[in-house]
Simulated scan of single mutants.
Amino acid sequence: MQTMEQPAPSVLKLLAHDLRWTLLQQLTQSDYRVAELVAQVKQPLNLVSYHLRQLRQAGLVHERRSTADERSFYYSLDLQRLHTLYLQASSSLHPSLGEEIPPAQRTQWHFDGSPPRLLFLCTSNSARSQMAEALVGHLSQGQVQALSAGSHPAQAVNPLAIRTLARWGVQMSQSVPKSLEMFVGQPFDRVITLCDRVRERCPTWLDSSPIHWSLPDPTKAEGSEAERQQVFDQLASQLDVRIRLLLTLLERERQETVPGQKTAS
């Protein structure tokens, strides 16, 4: 049977460029500003900006204005969209190549040895970082130790944050804001900043790999209660995807150090 020739999918052409591939590799680890990416890939600003624009136009990379410096933007990788487009491209070659569970839909992980330790930081520790801490405990079924703190802790956790995760079956009613000073000097596998301002002032944890997720503060949302609830729902969904992907990376790292460990599904 004669097959109809088709051009290579555009996403494969996009990924085949060495600099774009390097930029994507950097963005799998953290959100970055363009100046930081320029320093990491050691290429001119105009060239890096051009290729970031190509990735943005394909919907693989998003930009968000920094809340710490409105003159700069943070770039983040939409790994879920990349996974979808990559599988679609594979399926166009052969249907069996597109059969895979998306990383953002994994439900089980396995960690041998001591539990990985994560610290989530934002300004008030009343919403973003608290929700991230609770989601890690829920998704990892207690296999990962997650903590959270803020540079200027609020008096209490935001009620909408508690209500939002309660809908997901995750309880936060006993959570209280904490100061990041409580954790300085403690070892962590990852320290994740969720607030642009905190990232600028965050102390360095020597034993950890820093990550930045540039996420808007839902407590600043205006409008009706339903509109503010929608902002919290969107944040929970973003955190859920990012955390599932982070757990997959941590599991892979543990596999490389603990012989014989197998990936859960």
Rank of each mutant, 00 (worst) to 15 (best):
S72Y: 14
T123E: 05
Q155E: 15
G98A: 15
A154P: 04
Q143L: 10
S126T: 14
D112N: 05
L121W: 08
Y86A: 11
G142H: 10
Q57I: 02
Q88P: 01
C122G: 08
F111A: 02
H138D: 10
S92F: 00
H83C: 07
A68S: 09
M131F: 09
Q141M: 10
L79N: 01
L139W: 12
L45A: 10
A104T: 14
W109Q: 02
R64T: 12
W109A: 07
S129H: 09
Q57V: 05
R117K: 15
R53E: 06
A149F: 06
Q130D: 03
A89K: 03
R81Q: 15
A89M: 09
A134K: 01
A146V: 05
G150I: 08
L45I: 11
H51E: 13
P116N: 07
L79P: 02
D78A: 05
Q155T: 13
S124F: 04
R53N: 02
A104D: 10
A68F: 11
Q105M: 12
E100F: 12
L60H: 01
S124E: 11
S76Y: 09
I101Q: 06
R117W: 00
S72G: 03
Q155H: 10
P115G: 07
A68E: 04
L118E: 05
A89I: 11
H138Y: 13
N125T: 06
Q54W: 00
E133W: 00
N158M: 00
V38F: 09
S90G: 15
T107V: 11
G98V: 12
S140E: 08
Q88K: 07
P116G: 08
A156M: 12
